[in-house]
Write a protein that binds this DNA or RNA. Sequence first.
RNA 1: GUGGGCGUAGCUCAGUCGGUAGAGCGCAGGAUUGUGAUUCCUGUGGUCGUGGGUUCGAUCCCCAUCGUCCACCCCA
Length: 430
Amino acid sequence: MKARYKHPRGMPDILPEAIGPWHRIEAAVRSTMHSYGYEEIRTPIVEKTELFKRGIGEATDIVEKEMYSFDDRKGESLTLRPENTASCVRAAVEGGLLQPGSVHRVWYHGPMFRYERPQLGRQRQFQQTGAEVYGVAGPAIEAELILMLAEIWRRIGVFDVASLEINTLGSSNDRTQYREQLVAYFNDHADQLDEDSVRRLQKNPLRILDTKNPDMTELVENAPKMADSLSDESKEHFEQLQALLAASGLKANVNPRLVRGLDYYSHTVFEWTTDRLGSQSAICGGGRYDAMLEDFGAKNTPGVGWAMGMERLVALTENLMQESASETISNGPDAFVICTVKDEVAAPLLLTEQLRRASPSWKVMQNTGSANLNNQLKRADKLSARCAVILGNDEIAAGTVTLKPLTSKNDPQTVPLSEAAPALSSILGS
RNA sequence: GUGGGCGUAGCUCAGUCGGUAGAGCGCAGGAUUGUGAUUCCUGUGGUCGUGGGUUCGAUCCCCAUCGUCCACCCCA
């Protein structure tokens, strides 16, 4: 058997056998969102290209070289969403949610698209789950968003391998000023910059601080510090956040080199990382982006949010599961209906339906294809069925059915067809 | 976008110093004509990722391409 077609690069299928961790994580996320009172929002997978250019920033890598853009039949440029923050803000403004003084907590989940070279934890189509809050200016909301993440980590079992880094970029004014100082400083030492840094100097000079080049550590160490450019309000905002996190018992490392690559952030930025995933160590990133809301037409409405990469969380949980050698969760049917009478098709079908209606929580499956009793029981066993429900010549003739427990050595019992459901119920209950 | 590794059966892999390939698991059947898990036997399996080149002959060598993995970069 040879596949005629293959999936596009970086857009792999998730086959049924691999869906388990996804469901567990998605359920944990959903329940946590509920606990914190966040409501789901869904936006289109495609937006006008302009939205992302404005929202994310023309000079970012995402906009410059990673977007899937195309012209529709009228010649309008559309783009597969590379992230969902801009869309959510657009939707909130367009939907009239952002009335003065109102507060909205929303979350989303879905596929995003970026044209990148795939590697571990990095796909071209990838799932992001995110949360956004509109209308709250103080640091308490950043604390809430971060604590919510800690709770998600607990619910999916990765809290112990996740660590939190935070930083502040200051207000837009602070940041602009700092940026100028930094550019001036690096221009004075242009001869010491490596190739990457020369490029960054134009686009995003803050990122030079995050260089991994050991030859530049001294240069970076002596660069002007963001902290020295912060206004009193910005400092207080950041200090309050740290106090709140400390009071919650959450360890947060202040990392002055944490500079998000998206243009829209100001004040708080944060990232959760893990050392278990190779180089794609960020499992979640976020921060405050008040300026984007104003730019999109919301007046005096602050915004904060985060997004997490679901593929990375799935990989991380699988990683941990392997270490603890935990058993796979049995997902077998409660009942497996077997018929050994060759031409009898109605009886097993109707019996299977009868059982499904008797109890909607049961998973009831019917053997497909014919085989002798022995092999049908083997199939039931391989599926981890809890009970085999057998229709044979004797049963059909007598209007009965035989139920054989498969998780115990208990004897099979034969009951009238009408008693099948109660009999199954008592077998499953015992 | 840059650099490197890898594509052989459904899965995990072996192999052919160039003469069209094997194992384990899986799947199917039987031992057991109406009672599963262990065991044993038998069977099913592959244009050796795709296209081109070199060659009498390519799964093997070369090139391209697609996919995959890793690092850079970037981010979630």
